[in-house]
Structure formats: structure tokens, C-alpha cells
Design a protein around this nucleic acid. Sequence first.
DNA 1: CTGAAAGCGCTTACAG
DNA 2: CTGAAAGCGCTTACAG
Lengths: 342, 342
Amino acid sequence: MNRGPDGKRRSVTIHDVAREAGVSRGTVSRVLNGGHYVSPAAQTAVNNAIRRTGYVVNRHARSLITGRSDSVAFLLTEPQERFFEDPNFNVLLRSCTQALASQDIPLLLMIAGSEDERRRNLRYIQAGHVDGVLLVSSHSGDPVAGELQAAGVPVVACGKPLGQQARIGYVAADDREGARDMVRYLHASGRRRIATVSGPPDTPGGVERLAGYRETLAECGLPADDLLIATGDYSRASGEQAAELLLRRAPDIDAVFVASDLMAQGVLDALARAGRRVPEDIAVGGFDDSPAAVSTRPALTTIRQPWDRISKEMVRMLLARIGGEEPAALILPTELVRRDSA
Amino acid sequence: MNRGPDGKRRSVTIHDVAREAGVSRGTVSRVLNGGHYVSPAAQTAVNNAIRRTGYVVNRHARSLITGRSDSVAFLLTEPQERFFEDPNFNVLLRSCTQALASQDIPLLLMIAGSEDERRRNLRYIQAGHVDGVLLVSSHSGDPVAGELQAAGVPVVACGKPLGQQARIGYVAADDREGARDMVRYLHASGRRRIATVSGPPDTPGGVERLAGYRETLAECGLPADDLLIATGDYSRASGEQAAELLLRRAPDIDAVFVASDLMAQGVLDALARAGRRVPEDIAVGGFDDSPAAVSTRPALTTIRQPWDRISKEMVRMLLARIGGEEPAALILPTELVRRDSA
DNA sequence: CTGAAAGCGCTTACAG
DNA sequence: CTGAAAGCGCTTACAG
């Protein structure tokens, strides 16, 4: 954008570049779009002209004709306020932004906290203002994924969208295997009464991590015991309550696998209040490796979710879908991070 | 977006609406843009036609002609990784998104972590792809505000941009008065050896909160003593180190005003390790009222920054600037939140 | 390989 | 108050 003689913004257009380079506007456009069917001489002339004039393509004009917006939405559906305060979310949003930026694709941030906002955002997306959607739903049963898919909008979800008919592409950490790793580790370090605090049963993490816990107990020859299982809602307070419940029902536990670091913080609080030492009396294992994990005392042994990679793969998959590829599910391995709590 | 007979996306255009309503495209456009100079009858006909056809305006076509993009950037310049993990940032980003969404203005999230990204984002913005910028810089001395301003792009910053020639609009909490409130409160509750952990001297919070501390000490007739002042970088670890330093230099302190909740967490850690009881031996006051404030033990007495209102006002001010209004500085009052640490 | 031309969907003076 | 027309800046067949 420059200033014209009238003082108003006047951008240099493809026309100016064409004149400067001594070619037609069509040729400039061809150079801009990959340089196919353009002679080396014309290439050079145009590129020089672009440099000299400081030309930048007008995306609106381009989008008007191509029908693509060359932008992508990051849609956060958030029945629970809490979700936004989840440090994991930060990492995700940031990595997605950067992965997209490296391809010069802007990210539109959309938050659907209320039904009203959900509808507004849906309308916006369906109007074709973005080429695709990175979907982050805290809970499943969220119809938005299906609605977008039905509208023909490419979608990639973070985590497996539960209860969806449509085959939606998604990227997720291997929740089940992560849980298994942690429980195996607790068992290997000599624990025999291993309890768990699971997440909500309508979330993939709630389901899969619990399943991993159960399977590993069985593999280790430890008896299944429902008294050892408490359920939280991923909040710190719910972790606290779950631990109290566990302590009442099974005072002899010597380990707890907690399905999120935030809940593990609550567990640590409850344990401290009950006078149990961690890890001496009771080992505590978390899940996520969120920033919370290093701020607890003792620091949390946990399972790392590869957020950075998840984001990159989500972006890659979405771009592929926009390019016409079919949906896929990508499961990424987790990693056990040993610190002090187990 | 509908599907045309060829299976390709085909949107209903202003043309379809015009035909359906029995008016010209110009009239439809006038209805769309406020309904001036349109007869009530035409109004109704067009509105009905819009409803029937499911018409949604093509923003690219509109932008091409108006020269506006009807979108706004949220630019985060982030020399320090840490900043993104600041819970305050979440609240800010979220409120801005929602304030904008209520006016149907999408927010483009841009992160400038490296010099390279800074340049890329600057170029994008200068190309006129957004109408204005909400600027969130963790540190001052950041040239980006001036550069944007110079390019004629409306900018509103979060917090006072230090060391800027240009008169840039900004919204900020009243750092100085907030600090004064806290120190007055500590003094009123009987403390007489009040130390402080200040923020970096190149941030407005670092400067202003320290100034407020100093002023209030003087007002209360307490002697100025540089041994009572330690400086951190807003990180938890720096709070810990600062507290250790303070304890060494002035073991008789009975209160600490800490310029951020995150640093206050570190102070609490150090105090606990030193065997000092909070608040019995030493009262601790924070700043921010971030989520961290309720998760500490004891819970933090602190100064609330009105993030929600800051965001709303930033959006309002940016929209006003885009509309041609001159820059302004808006200072919002803070609030003392009493909990257990002081 | 290249130019002339049509056209994307809208807004906005310009007449009436 | 309303319609016909020009034009925003670009891409893309279409001829050559």
C-alpha cells in the first residue's frame, strides 16, 4: 500500500508491475502463480518489477476469482470455560498458528462458547470465508464436527471426535498406550495397589486412558477393583475430591494414575492434607506434561502429549484435505517423563 | 455456498437475490449496507429474498471494492517464550475474539516470535490485509508499534508502549495506583518492613508498580531502603531468587509486594523453604489476579487487572481508530482482591 | 510462451 | 428512491 496523489491508500497492482516489466498482466499473473508457461526472460523481468514496485498481491481479488480464501479457522468449541485456561490449549494454538504462518496462511480464531456463537461461527464458515477448519472440541457429542463435514468444509479435529457418524479426520496422542506406559512404570517400581482418577467418560481421554489402565492391571496380574477407580472432570478440584474418595474407599493404595496433570495437582493437594508423602507413601503419575507438571511440589512424573507435533500434523492434514485428500486418523506416540512424584 | 448443477460450489449472489426480489442489484446492495435511500417495500422484498435464498455476502468482492478487509489482527510479539504461557494472555485473547465476533469481525492471530516472523507479519499487515492491529508486546523497545503506526495502520496496544516516539493508542490497567493500593493495604494491616519484587525495568508494569510502591512508602512515612527492592523478570523462578536475596539482605521484612502473581508463587516457595509462615511472619501481595493466584497455598491476596474490560476497550478503541478517530490512552482502575496471603 | 478479453461478486457515483 | 453501468484487482481459458 502506498499513498496516491490524493492522499488515499493506493496499492500497486498487477497492472503497474506489467507496465514496469513490459509484459501483459496475464504474464505477471502466471509468474505469480508458479511461473508455468513463462519464458525465463519474462520471469526475470517480472520478478524485478515486483521488487522495484513493492508489489503485494491483493488477496481479495485473487480469492474472488479462485473461490478460495487461503485462510483457515481454528474453531474452539468450549462448553466449559475451563478449557481455555488449559495450558495445553496454548501450545496447540500457538503451534498451529506458526505452522500455518510458514505457509503464509492466516489463522482465524473462532470461539464458540455459547449456542449463539456456535451458530454465528458456523454460518461464517459455511459462507466459504475459510478453506478449512482446525476443530478443537473439549467434549464430544459436539455436533459441530458433523455439521461442518456435512457442509462440505474440510475439517481436522484434535483428538478423536466421539459419537460421530461422519468420518472426520483427526490427529491424537495415543491415550491408551500412554496410560499403559504409566501404569507399567508404576508397577515396575513396585506398586501393587494402583488406583486411577479418570477423565469424563464422554471424552476420548476419559475413555482411552481408563481402558489402558485396566488392560495393564490385568496384564500385570493385579486384580481389577472398581473401588480403585474415581472419575474427575479434568479440573483441579475434581482431582482433589477424587483423591479423597479413593483414600476413604481404599486407604491402602500406593499409587495413583491421574488422567490429567491438572487433576494430579488436586490429588497432590489432597494427599498432602491427608499426610501421605509423595512418592514415598503414594506415587502419583499424571498425563499431559503441561506446564503445571513442573510447578507442583513434588514435580510430576507424567505422560507427555506431543502437542507441537500434533499441531503440525493437524495443519498438514487439513491442507491435504483442502487439496482433496480423504480423511485419516493419525495417532502419535506419547512419552513417559520421569520427575519426582513417581 | 450451495452446489451448482456441475457439482462445484456455487454461491447465491446478489444477482439471485435481486431477481428473487424483483429489484436491481444496486438496491440489494443498498439494503445490505444500511438500507439508506431504499423504500420500505423494497427493503422488505429484499430481506425476504435474502432469507429465501440463504444469501451471504461475499466478503472478498466487498473488500475488493471498499478497500477494507473487515478483519483485525491480534499481533503477539514475544521475545520471551514464557509470555504465551501467561494465563493473562488467554483471557485477553479470548475476550478480544469475542468482542470482535459480536461485530462479525474475524480476528487473525499472528505471532512474531522471531525476527523472521516479525517481518513476515509486518509485510502481511502493511499489504492491507487487515484494517487494524491489536498489539500485545511483552516488552517495550519493540519497534513494531512504531513501524505499524508509520505505515498508517491503526494500532491499539495493550499496556503503554514505552520508548515510542509515535503517539500510539493504548489501554492499560492503572499499574501505579494498583501498586499503591496494595502497599497501603499492607501498611494498614500493620506491616512496617515492606519489601518489593519488581518487574523488568523495560516494561510499564516494572516501572509503574515500583513507582507506586516507592510513593506509598514515602506517604506512610516509611524510610526508603534499596535493600528492600529486588527485581525479577516475571517468571516464577525469578520470584524465588528475588525472595532469597531479600531474605539475605533484610531478614526482618514482614511483607513483600510482588509485581506479578507468577513471581509471587516463587516468593511463596522460597519463603516456605526458609521456614517463614505466610501471612503470619511475612505477608505477600501479588499483582494480576491470574488463575495462579487461587492455586497457591495460601491463596494470594492480589491486585486484579480488569482483563475483560481491557480487551473490550481495546477493541472499541481500535474500531474507533479505523473509523478515523485519533489515538488515546485509556487507563482502567484495578481492584484489591483479599485472600489469605496478606 | 504470450496477449487480449471475459468475468469473479460486489459497491458506488451518476442520472433519472 | 431506483436502475444501468463502471470498475475494484486479479485469474484463466482462448487464440495465436
